[in-house]
C-alpha cells in the first residue's frame, strides 16, 4: 500500500499526485516508471515517475484522466491509499555530456521528460526544450522546464499559448538555424514521436523515444508491451521504455494501442455512470 500525500490539479484532466514510496524514491533514476493497481478488481497500469523527493520519501506522478483507472486514480484524495505500487521499473535513461540536447514533450507525455531533462542539464548539457499540446491547459510543467532549459519553446495546436503549430515545426526551425543538435529526446503521443523520428532521421540526429506500450506485469513475463525495434522484438518494460526512435515500428504500435478500445470505452462509461 502506498499513501497519497497530495493531489494537485494542473489542468482540466491533468493531476499531479505525490505518493509516499520511500524505497522507490531512493532507487529511481530518470526514465523509469512504476506499475500500480488501485483495488482488488483493478488493472495494473504503468505511469512514469515525473519527480521525486528522496528526503520526504515521495514520488510524483502526473496523470491525465483518460480511462476508467486514471479517472479513479485522480479522484483519490490525500490520505487515501494505492493498493499496489511496484517500481522503479525499466532501464534508466543513458545520460551523458554531449553538448546541445533537445527535449521534446507532447501533452501529458511531457511529465516523464522532466527528470530526464534535469539529468541532462546536471550532466552539463545545453538544454533546448520544446513543449507542445493541443491547448495551453494541457501543457505540463512549463515553469519547471523553463527553470532548467537554456531555451524553452512552447507550441499549441490552437495557438492559445506560445506559437501555433506542432513540436516538429519548432524542431525544424532549430535545424534550419544550423544549431548543432547532439541528441533529441522525444516523449509524448506515439504519433508525435513517430513524426519527430521521421524528421530527425533525415538529418541523422540521434533520437531517443520513450514508449507508452500496453503493459500488464511490467517485469518482462508477458510480452504484452512488445515492440519491433529494427530486426528484433523487444519488451518495452525490460529493454525500454527508451529506444532508438529511428528503429521503432511506430505503425504497428499505433495499431496495437487500439486492441482494447471497445472494452476501455465500456469500462469508462460504466465508471462515470456509477460515480456522478
Amino acid at each position: 500500500m502506498a499513501q497519497i500525500k497530495a493531489v494537485t490539479r494542473l489542468s482540466k484532466n491533468v493531476y499531479r499526485l505525490t505518493v509516499a514510496a520511500p524505497e522507490i524514491a531512493a532507487k529511481h533514476q530518470p526514465g523509469q516508471f512504476i506499475i500500480l493497481r488501485l483495488d482488488k478488481n483493478g488493472e495494473r497500469i504503468p505511469l512514469t515517475i515525473a519527480d521525486k523527493d528522496t528526503a520526504a520519501g515521495t514520488i510524483d506522478l502526473i496523470v491525465q484522466a483518460v480511462g476508467k483507472t486514471t479517472h479513479q486514480l485522480v479522484s483519490l484524495k490525500a490520505g487515501e491509499d494505492i493498493l499496489d505500487l511496484a517500481g522503479p521499473l525499466g532501464l534508466p535513461t543513458r545520460i551523458e555530456k554531449l553538448g546541445t540536447v533537445v527535449m521534446l514533450g507532447g501533452g501529458v507525455g511531457t511529465a516523464p521528460l522532466y527528470p530526464i531533462a534535469k539529468g541532462f542539464q546536471q550532466a552539463g548539457n545545453k538544454i533546448i526544450t520544446i513543449l507542445g499540446a493541443r491547448n495551453k491547459d494541457l501543457l505540463v510543467l512549463p515553469e519547471e522546464f523553463a527553470a532548467l532549459s537554456d531555451e524553452l519553446l512552447l507550441m499549441t495546436d490552437d495557438g492559445s499559448l506560445g506559437e501555433k503549430g506542432l513540436v516538429t515545426h519548432a524542431l525544424q526551425k532549430l535545424i534550419d538555424q544550423k544549431i548543432e543538435i547532439k541528441k533529441v529526446v522525444a516523449i509524448g503521443p506515439l504519433i508525435m514521436m513517430k513524426f519527430v523520428a521521421e524528421l530527425t532521421r533525415k538529418y541523422k540526429i540521434p533520437t531517443v523515444v520513450s514508449l507508452n506500450s500496453l503493459m500488464i506485469d511490467g517485469t518482462g513475463m508477458c510480452g504484452g508491451c512488445r515492440v519491433r525495434v529494427g530486426a528484433e522484438t523487444k519488451f518495452t518494460c525490460v529493454h525500454g521504455p527508451e529506444f532508438d526512435g529511428h528503429l521503432v515500428d511506430f505503425d504497428a504500435l499505433l495499431k496495437r494501442a487500439n486492441t482494447y478500445k471497445t472494452a476501455e470505452k465500456d469500462s469508462l462509461n460504466k465508471y462515470l455512470e456509477a460515480s456522478p
Binding site: 495494473r44 506485469d217 508477458c222 510480452g223 519491433r228 522484438t233
Partner: peptide, 19 residues
C-alpha cells in the same frame, strides 16, 4: 506476431488468472 489478438500464453493466462 505483433498483430492485435496475438498473445503469449503468459500474457493470456496472467490476464485471466492474476487479473
Amino acid at each position: 506476431e505483433d498483430l492485435n489478438g496475438v498473445y503469449s500464453a503468459n500474457e493470456y493466462l496472467t490476464r485471466l488468472n492474476l487479473m
